[in-house]
């Protein structure tokens, strides 16, 4: 289909130029720079970088700490995603029944989207601290039951809960929108055929929600890899003994605290490949996004 166009391409160039310059400066150049660093090593006394091939990658992949970090990231990704997706889906599918108080429920589910990761982290760190409030009370009844400062599993648990809490609102918005784009007539037809509410949820709404579900799932996993810095930094700072040292956090630490740019760049490249792979999966599902009209 031909559209009507304006002829003056100089105007078009002017319109597009600022964005292209910014994207080149802050996206393409840094990304290529990461590649360059990942394959080179900076000389200790200046004098440029020398080409080292895959040495940086070999060093990282031979580092047990890095594998720990990958493992921890996967645990966090699965834990927080499962919790946030299941919770949001349940809430959305019942909120979608639009009983009395629907609008109130909706606002109540959406507002956490607005909260900054460090604020979430700090709030949950307080809630879970063994030094105050509820947890201190529980510890007095059952001594040493809860101590995330020493216990890595417990620390990971509280980071997962905080991460999931932060994500529920976002997922809820998408699930609710997905549910509302299912034509009313389908559900009415189901009702006429004698399918009750729960049956309609299981056999009509959930299957038709599948594309949204996959989309949300992938976004959650990607976000858990990239967007977890604020929560980890404020809650556990990667501790105790690296039990919550997620990949993003390790890149930050190695790069800016350890000043190992090449190592951090190589880790960035690995994380980038991971995120790109996930994004491809996601785009496949977006393309297949079903339109019900």
């Amino acid at each position: 289909m031909r559209r009507a166009y304006f002829k003056n391409n100089w105007v078009a160039a002017l319109m597009v130029a600022p964005q292209l310059i910014i994207v080149f400066t802050f996206f393409y150049f840094p990304t290529s720079q990461a590649l360059y660093w990942a394959f080179t090593l900076e000389q200790p006394w200046g004098g440029g970088n020398t080409w080292v091939g895959f040495d940086n990658f070999a060093a990282i992949l031979g580092d047990a700490y890095y594998w720990d970090s990958i493992w921890v990231s996967i645990v966090y990704a699965i834990g927080s995603t499962a919790l946030a997706v299941i919770m949001a889906l349940t809430l959305a599918i019942f909120a979608d029944r639009q009983l009395a108080g629907y609008k109130l429920y909706r606002v109540g589910m959406i507002w956490p989207y607005a909260i900054a990761a460090p604020a979430v982290g700090l709030a949950f760190r307080f809630i879970f601290t063994p030094g105050a409030g509820l947890m201190m009370f529980i510890n007095q009844m059952f001594p040493d039951l809860w101590n995330p400062v020493d216990n890595g599993t417990q620390a990971m648990g509280m980071v997962i809960v905080a991460g999931a809490w932060k994500q529920v609102a976002y997922n809820f918005i998408f699930f609710l929108a997905g549910l509302q784009s299912i034509p009313r007539s389908l559900i009415e037809a189901g009702a006429m055929d004698g399918a009750r509410v729960l049956r309609r949820m299981r056999d009509i709404q959930l299957p038709l929600l599948a594309p949204t579900f996959f989309f949300v799932l992938v976004i959650n996993i990607t976000d858990s890899f990239t967007d977890s810095f604020g929560i980890v930094d404020t809650m556990t700072a990667g501790g105790p003994s690296r039990a919550t040292d997620l990949m993003v956090y390790k890149i930050f630490n190695d790069g800016f605290q350890g000043l190992d740019y090449s190592g951090a760049a190589a880790q960035s490249i690995i994380l980038m490949l991971l995120v790109i792979a996930l994004t491809f999966v996601q785009f496949r599902y977006i393309e297949r996004k079903v339109h019900y009209t």
């Binding site: 400066t25 802050f26 996206f27 150049f29 840094p30 990304t31 720079q33 990461a34 660093w37 990239t226 967007d227 810095f229 993003v248 890149i251 930050f252 790069g255 800016f256 740019y261 951090a264 760049a265 960035s268 994380l271 980038m272 995120v275 790109i276 994004t279």
Partner: peptide, 15 residues
């Protein structure tokens, strides 16, 4: 859209 800032944080800092 693919690579959020967090992933390319070290070289972006250099820029």
């Amino acid at each position: 859209l693919m690579l959020p800032l967090e992933v390319r944080i070290v070289p972006t800092y250099a820029v």
